[in-house]
Design a binder for these strands. Structure first.
Length: 462
DNA sequence: TAACAGGAGATGG
DNA sequence: CCATCTCCTGTTA
């Protein structure tokens, strides 16, 4: 993911930065929660005069390999006031007793660490509270652990006045406390960007993945980029090229040959390429296998129109994967989009004479027969979820990252779907029947704990 | 009562 | 042909 940053060019970098900024704000909020927990931890420790240095700390190494850092000693003093969750473990842990340990977890890439007191056993560890008493996670059990002084934190002072109950520790999932590192935030930002891109593609009625574009899609897309940036449509000047060819062009080519709009096209294209490289788990049958070596051979042997030929790049290394298109799980080839090469064109001559095999590799449906494109229900639902218009009253994300959403107003969603499809008799019963058809197709599923009106997009359709 | 699950035939692009 | 649409029966919360 980190390499994506360098690939996202001007001018969309600004949009990207805004998204990252938003994410950072969210992260800041979660940091506040963490700080409060830490302050509560300090308050508790100070209140009981517990010297962290004497605590039987179990240090998790940076990779959380507990076994590498076994428990070394136990405290002599256990105060009566010490709540159960802070009491140390006997050397032999009784199976019925809850066990607690303190682990240090590095915050981001800094040397400072955060201490998590966790409950062990059962299905896993539950974070009970946290504090930042430890200063070095890499050292062994004789680390110096300095409890913070009373006045070193505003959080502490604020909390001192507010907190009455020593047991007012908010149980928290350890995951929630993990500091989101940069790559995670970037991944999230790219995910957001991907949503925007997918929505644009859905509106344009073209596949998400530029590699699946046919020349008509490319033209449509370039026209759209020009309209979006309020400049003259340059697509009419371009020789018809398909998505794979477009993707294999040197990004510099666009600015060199088309000036400012070239930079914009390049930016948008790089984003589309980047956004489509980050599907974590491709659904079965959703990816096409593209033989890039053969593609490159074909490119090398192809003479494109003057407008595009000078910048044909030999570096197609960035084309390392392919992604599902928006229409169906096997709808990934541009041949299915009614694309029939013009027999008189150089492009199609090369395609048909020079590399039928490559064409076949690209196209799961070599006949080239296609459907008229209509929006699919899952796309429509995603569109509502991602829409800037306010549809949150009828459908909203419960967990954007996991693709879990809830239909809040089934009647309204059905009405919207019926309107879009020109089916006045549409209702939720019918809509949900269609959604259920997605179960076996692996597009939408019910969540693990099935809840009413809650569904989840499967991996690859997020 | 609404939502859910899934079979089965019809429909339209 | 395929993605629904429609209607249906039965189940669950």
């Amino acid at each position: 993911m980190s390499t994506l940053v360098g690939n996202i060019p001007f001018p969309l970098i600004e949009q990207y930065r805004t998204m990252v900024k938003d994410l950072e704000l969210e992260e800041e909020e979660s940091k506040c929660v963490t700080r409060q927990l830490q302050a509560k931890g300090r308050y508790f420790m100070d209140y009981h005069g517990i010297d962290i240095k004497e605590e039987p700390l179990v240090y998790a190494s940076q990779d959380n390999n507990m076994a590498a850092n076994p428990i070394s000693s136990y405290p002599d003093v256990v105060t009566d006031e010490m709540p159960n969750f802070l009491r140390p473990l006997p050397r032999t842990v009784p199976s019925q007793a809850p066990a607690y340990q303190v682990a240090s977890v590095p915050i981001s890439n800094q040397t400072k660490t955060s201490t998590y007191i966790t409950e062990l056993g059962g299905s896993g560890c539950t974070l009970v509270t946290s504090g930042d008493f430890l200063t070095d996670s890499s050292s062994s059990s004789n680390s110096s652990c300095t409890p913070p002084s009373v006045d070193d934190s505003l959080d502490y002072l604020d909390l001192d006045q507010q907190t009455l109950s020593l047991y007012d520790f908010e149980p928290m999932d350890a995951k929630q406390c993990e500091s989101a590192d940069t790559s995670e935030r970037l991944e999230e930002a790219v995910m957001l960007m991907r949503d925007v891109i997918h929505k644009d593609c859905a509106e344009l009625d073209i596949p998400y993945d530029p590699l699946a574009w046919n020349p008509e899609h490319v033209r449509k897309w370039i026209t759209w980029v020009c309209q979006k940036n309020k400049v003259h449509d340059v697509s009419v000047n371009l020789y018809p090229i398909d998505g794979p060819t477009l993707c294999s062009l040197d990004p510099n080519y666009f600015s060199q040959n088309l000036g400012e709009i070239g930079r914009m096209i390049s930016s948008e294209l790089e984003l589309s390429k980047a956004a489509n490289r980050c599907f974590p788990n491709p659904p079965k049958g959703a990816y096409i296998t593209v033989d890039y070596e053969r593609h490159q051979q074909w490119l090398d042997s192809t003479t494109l129109a003057p407008c595009l030929s000078p910048a044909l790049s030999t570096s197609s290394s960035s084309l390392d994967s392919s992604t599902p298109g928006p229409h169906s799980e096997d709808d990934t080839s541009y041949s299915k989009y009614n694309y029939r090469p013009d027999k008189n064109s150089q492009f199609s001559t090369k395609m048909s004479n020079n590399d039928e095999n490559f064409n076949r590799i690209l196209a799961k449906h070599p006949t080239g027969r296609g459907h008229k494109q209509t929006i699919h229900l899952w796309q429509f639902l995603k569109e509502l979820l991602l829409s800037k218009e306010n549809h949150h009253d009828c459908i909203r994300w419960l967990d954007r990252k996991a693709g879990i959403f809830k239909i809040e107003d089934s009647k309204k969603v059905a009405l919207l779907w019926g309107t879009r499809k020109n089916r006045p008799a549409m209702n939720y019963d019918k809509l949900s029947r269609s959604v259920r058809q997605y179960y076996k197709k692996g597009i939408i599923k019910k969540t693990e704990q099935s809840k009413r009106l809650v569904y989840q997009f499967c991996a690859g359709y997020l």
